[in-house]
Computed example of a mutant assay.
Amino acid sequence: MTVGGLLAPATRVGTAATLAGSGYIHARLYADGYRFVHVVGPLFLLQASVSFAVAALLLIGMPPLLRLAAAGVALGALGGFAASRTVGVFGFTEHGLQPAPQALLSILAEAGTLLLLAVWQAVAFRRRGVSGGSAGAGGRYLVLRPPAATAADRSLTTASRVATGFRP
C-alpha cells in the first residue's frame, strides 16, 4: 500500500481518536463534579456524547457532513473553553489551565481534531484536480485544472456559437 493510500485511513482513525479523547475528558470532568454546575454540567455531558457518536461514525467513513460535524464539535468545545475563561458561560468561569491536566489535554485533543481535518481536506482537494506547477526559481504553487469537456458540452458550445453567429 502506498503512503497516499495509508493517509486516508490514518487521518480518519486519528480524527476519531482525538475526538473520542476530547469526549472522554469531558465525560470524566462531568463525572468528577461538573454535573453539579448549573447548565454547564449537562453541556459537558452533551459534548462527550456527541464526540463519542461522531468519532464512532468517523471510523465508518468521512463524508463532508460528518467532517463538518467533527469540526463543529471541536470548535464548540474550544469556544466554550475560551468563553469560560473570559466572559463566563451561564455565570460559570474558570481561570488558566484548570482543571489540570484535563484543560490542556482537551485543548490538544480538539486542536488535533481540527489539524487532522485540515490535512484530510487538503489531501482531498489536491486529489480532485489540483497539481503542482512551477512559479519560477524552483518554487511551487497549486494550479486548478478545469474538468474535461464532455461531448454534450462541446455540442452545446457549437450550438451556442451557431445561434449567436460567433466565428472564431
Rank of each mutant, 00 (worst) to 15 (best):
R128G: 14
A53F: 12
R35Q: 14
G139E: 10
L108V: 14
A135V: 10
G96F: 02
R128H: 09
V119W: 06
F52K: 00
G80A: 01
W120Q: 13
P147D: 12
P147Y: 09
R35P: 00
L66N: 05
Q98E: 10
S51A: 15
F36H: 12
S49E: 13
R128F: 02
L59Y: 00
P63H: 03
F125A: 12
D153T: 00
A135Y: 09
A152R: 13
A151W: 10
V73T: 12
G138Q: 05
V73Q: 14
T157N: 13
T86C: 01
V37C: 03
Q102H: 11
L19Y: 10
V89F: 07
Y141G: 14
V130N: 08
L105W: 06
I25Q: 00
G129A: 03
G21V: 00
D153C: 08
G33Q: 06
S106E: 12
P42H: 05
H95Q: 08
V162I: 14
S155H: 12
T113M: 05
E94A: 02
R35E: 14
L46I: 08
S131C: 05
L45W: 10
L144V: 10
A111E: 12
T93P: 04
G91C: 02
V39D: 03
A69Y: 07
G61V: 05
G41H: 06
S84A: 14
R154A: 15
W120C: 02
L19G: 11
A56V: 06
D153V: 04
A77N: 11
L78V: 00
L59M: 11
R67A: 09
T164I: 01
A163D: 13
R161K: 15
R126G: 04
R35L: 04
V54T: 13
T86M: 02
L65M: 07
G76P: 11
A122P: 04
T93V: 06
G33N: 03
G23Q: 02
T150C: 07
L117W: 08
L115G: 12
S134V: 12
L117M: 06
L108D: 12
A69H: 09
R67S: 12
L57F: 08
M62Y: 00
G96R: 06
A55Q: 04
A149K: 15
R35Y: 09
D32K: 06
T158F: 13
F52E: 11
T86V: 10
F92C: 04
A135R: 07
L117G: 07
T93C: 00
G41F: 00
V143P: 05
L142C: 05
F52M: 10
G23K: 03
V87K: 02
V37W: 04
P147C: 03
Q102D: 09
A55E: 05
A82K: 00
R35G: 15
F92E: 04
L108W: 13
L29C: 01
A152I: 06
A163E: 13
R126P: 00
R35C: 05
G132M: 08
P64K: 09
R154V: 15
P101Q: 01
F44H: 09
S134N: 09
F125W: 12
A70K: 03
G72A: 06
G129Q: 05
S51F: 08
A27S: 14
M62T: 11
Y30W: 15
A152P: 04
